[in-house]
């Protein structure tokens, strides 16, 4: 009796695995959902769904960013060097390109949601172009996005910092996403202004 049950269970398992394999082979949709391969279009699988909170405290998802190409930068407000540098650069690119980037959207995503709540992010962004939207959320929401977007995030304690002070190692590039939310390219930290401007123009025209 118990042997018969085991046999049935094993056959059901075999059928399940076989069905799943078949689905993976024949269906792009299933493949994309399970393996995140991006449907074999030759575009790296960077990006994807997210649910976060903007600097006004309202819930936003990736769907709110569809329909227009978008520029994302990941950083944190306790970062003295790279983050303000990049945000000032983005600000100057926006000013330089003027109407050319009217259709682009710009977002600053914090990788330090514990310290960067919506109010902190809102206050921080006052120093930069007003078109840059701030995104934060629960630590789980932010790390889910970081994972999908292949953004490296690592909290590192500062030894002589008082009271558990820490810094956050993180990906330095600016992400360019097309109007379908697909990965379009990056602007590396320290890339020459001319290159950055050319990439943003291309994103505005083709993304």
């Amino acid at each position: 009796m118990s042997l018969r049950k085991l046999r049935i269970f094993l056959w059901v398992s075999v059928a399940f695995v076989a069905g799943l394999s078949l689905a993976l082979v024949i269906s792009d949709d299933v493949r994309e959902r399970i393996l995140h391969t991006g449907g074999g279009e030759g575009v790296a699988a960077i990006g994807g769904p997210f649910e976060l909170v903007d600097h006004r405290g309202e819930t936003v998802t990736h769907e709110d960013f569809l329909g227009q190409p978008a520029v994302y930068f990941f950083g944190f407000t306790h970062c003295p060097d790279i983050c303000p540098t990049t945000l000032f650069e983005i600000t100057s690119w926006i000013q330089e390109l003027g109407e050319e980037v009217d259709d682009l959207r710009f977002a600053f995503v914090t990788v330090d949601p514990e310290r960067d709540g919506p109010e902190v992010v809102a206050q921080y962004l006052q120093a930069f172009d007003e078109r840059i939207v701030g995104l934060t959320g629960t630590p789980e929401q932010v790390s889910a996005m970081a994972e999908n977007w292949r953004v490296y995030v690592r909290k590192v304690p500062l030894e002589d910092g008082d009271g558990g002070d820490y810094t956050v190692d993180h990906t330095a590039s600016v992400y360019l996403m097309d109007s379908d939310g697909r990965f379009f390219g990056t602007i590396a930290f320290g890339e020459a202004d001319d290159n950055a401007l050319a990439k943003l123009r291309r994103l505005a025209q083709e993304g």
């Binding site: 060097d81 790279i82 500062l158 810094t167 190692d169 990906t171 590039s173 590396a188 930290f189």
Partner: peptide, 28 residues
């Protein structure tokens, strides 16, 4: 910024300037 990852560390030992050399502090 190595392999596109930004890291920041305190320099506890200070910053040496070699004779005839220079140190140029800059973002990044």
């Amino acid at each position: 910024v190595i392999d596109d990852v930004m890291r920041m560390r305190p320099l506890d030992g200070g910053i040496e300037i070699e004779p005839g050399g220079s140190i140029e502090m800059a973002p990044g």
